[in-house]
Amino acid sequence: MSPIASNDGMRPWRLLRAALCVFVAVCLLSPLVVVLIISFSSAPFLQFPPPGLSLRWYMLLFSTPAWMNSLLVSVELLVPSSILATIMGTAAAYALVRGRVPGAPFIMACLMLPIVVPGMITAAALFGVYRGLGLNGTLTGLIIGHTVLNLPYVVATVASALRVQDARLELAAATLGAPPWATFRRITLPLVLPAVLSSLLIAMILSFDELIVSLFVSSARVRPVAVQMWSNLMGDFDPTIAAIASVCFLFAFLVLLADLALRAGRSLRLT
């Protein structure tokens, strides 16, 4: 720090900056911490601080068929939709970045649209079109919707990883006589694998959390966790919701840690 920059005139600003950072930190984290604590409450209402601790809301959660059923539906939904989106998105990103495709920037922009268009519009549109096809209230309908919503994240993540990789490595393999598929499998894929796995994780999280399309397309029988939470929230809040929210939070937190580990591995390999 130079003597000029650290003169006393800056001190109040530094204090203000620190205070605002602490305020933002509290705003971002306190809700999550409070929900975690309340989920272990022994009281039948969302009281804070809780009068005592218990696991009764977790027991209730895991013994209520509606919640268990919705957890199952969520898994049946997020596994295929995240895998499909990852395969389709990786293939598309590879073609757009490495292939000589006319209008590649335009196609890329179109593939990003599901992020830009507000969720309510996508949800209403799918609901409307599904009515004629009998897809509302089916797992297939949900999987199709979630795959489309996940696609942009996969394409963006994999495309940016491909742009960083040296295309000449593939060219060298091809020159040495490797067929295109072998070049992809032995050279390209290992290089971008961390990005592909990272986008698979993102897709899983997004699918698990997605509410608006699920709200329109699901039914009482095929109802993912997010919709089950929503319908409970419209009634009375009770600590079961805090328990399921904590489960969701834990799931996201673990996936984030896995993703950070993947990214750390990737940057190590680059240097």
């Binding site: 984290l29 809700p31 409070v34 804070f48």
Partner: peptide
């Protein structure tokens, strides 16, 4: 600190804010 809530579902965070 910013990523953890960013990755947590919007529904969970809204519910937490409501509490």
């Amino acid at each position: 600190l910013v990523l953890v809530p960013f990755w947590t579902s919007l529904l969970v965070r809204s519910f937490a804010t409501a509490i």
